[in-house]
Computed example of a mutant assay.
Amino acid sequence: MPDYHALMPPIRIVHRTRLPVAEAWSRLTDWARHGAQVPFTRTTVETAPPTRVGTRFTARTGVGRVTFDDPMEVTVWRPPTEGSAGLVRLDKRGRVVLGWAEIEVRPLEPSGTEVEWREDLRVRGLGRFFDPVVAAAARLLFGRALARLLRS
């Protein structure tokens, strides 16, 4: 299997919010809310709460009969603690969308949170020629979703 991380540099989005770290974490790890922020997408969580390593969910995107699934599994789950960062890693397990995503939340002094969303995204069937287009579209889409999830 190819090393997709080596094929395309990860997408990186940094966002600052006045929300406390715990609230930002809670909003960013509410997987069902993610689908509501991405056009033509709904997210279904397949495992019982609470989220932990092994939690699985699928984002289904499409219109009518033209759809694709983006199944993901939580492979790192480190919620923030008082004064320390939190990190969640999602590995994409689908036939179309491949790669991984990481969301890290860090406390800001004197208050607020810095969020870093990193994603290594590959679409099966699209050659490396399309990587810049995929990355640009993903930055736009995920940047908007991130801002909406953190909106007060």
Rank of each mutant, 00 (worst) to 15 (best):
residue 2 P to I: 05
residue 4 Y to I: 13
residue 5 H to K: 05
residue 6 A to K: 15
residue 8 M to P: 00
residue 8 M to R: 15
residue 9 P to C: 00
residue 10 P to N: 04
residue 10 P to G: 02
residue 11 I to Q: 05
residue 11 I to G: 11
residue 12 R to Q: 12
residue 13 I to W: 10
residue 14 V to N: 07
residue 14 V to Q: 15
residue 15 H to Q: 15
residue 17 T to A: 08
residue 26 S to N: 09
residue 26 S to F: 03
residue 26 S to C: 05
residue 27 R to A: 08
residue 28 L to G: 02
residue 30 D to N: 15
residue 30 D to S: 09
residue 30 D to P: 11
residue 31 W to L: 12
residue 31 W to T: 00
residue 32 A to N: 06
residue 32 A to D: 09
residue 34 H to F: 13
residue 35 G to Q: 04
residue 36 A to R: 15
residue 36 A to M: 08
residue 36 A to C: 01
residue 39 P to K: 10
residue 42 R to Y: 11
residue 45 V to A: 08
residue 45 V to T: 14
residue 45 V to F: 11
residue 46 E to Y: 01
residue 49 P to Q: 13
residue 54 G to L: 07
residue 54 G to D: 03
residue 55 T to A: 09
residue 56 R to G: 01
residue 58 T to D: 07
residue 58 T to W: 06
residue 59 A to F: 06
residue 59 A to M: 11
residue 61 T to F: 01
residue 63 V to S: 01
residue 64 G to R: 13
residue 64 G to S: 02
residue 65 R to Q: 02
residue 66 V to P: 00
residue 68 F to Q: 09
residue 69 D to V: 06
residue 76 V to Y: 09
residue 77 W to A: 01
residue 80 P to N: 07
residue 81 T to G: 13
residue 83 G to R: 14
residue 88 V to Q: 12
residue 93 R to Y: 06
residue 94 G to L: 00
residue 95 R to I: 01
residue 97 V to D: 01
residue 98 L to V: 10
residue 98 L to P: 00
residue 99 G to L: 02
residue 100 W to L: 00
residue 100 W to A: 01
residue 101 A to G: 13
residue 105 V to R: 03
residue 106 R to S: 14
residue 107 P to F: 02
residue 108 L to I: 10
residue 112 G to S: 10
residue 113 T to C: 03
residue 114 E to F: 08
residue 116 E to H: 02
residue 119 E to D: 04
residue 119 E to Q: 14
residue 119 E to P: 00
residue 120 D to C: 14
residue 122 R to W: 13
residue 123 V to S: 00
residue 124 R to S: 08
residue 124 R to C: 03
residue 125 G to V: 14
residue 126 L to Y: 10
residue 126 L to W: 04
residue 127 G to H: 09
residue 129 F to A: 07
residue 130 F to V: 14
residue 131 D to F: 05
residue 133 V to K: 10
residue 134 V to S: 08
residue 134 V to K: 13
residue 135 A to D: 06
residue 136 A to K: 08
residue 137 A to N: 07
residue 138 A to I: 02
residue 140 L to G: 09
residue 140 L to K: 15
residue 141 L to C: 02
residue 142 F to R: 04
residue 148 R to M: 03
residue 150 L to M: 12
residue 150 L to R: 13
residue 152 S to A: 12
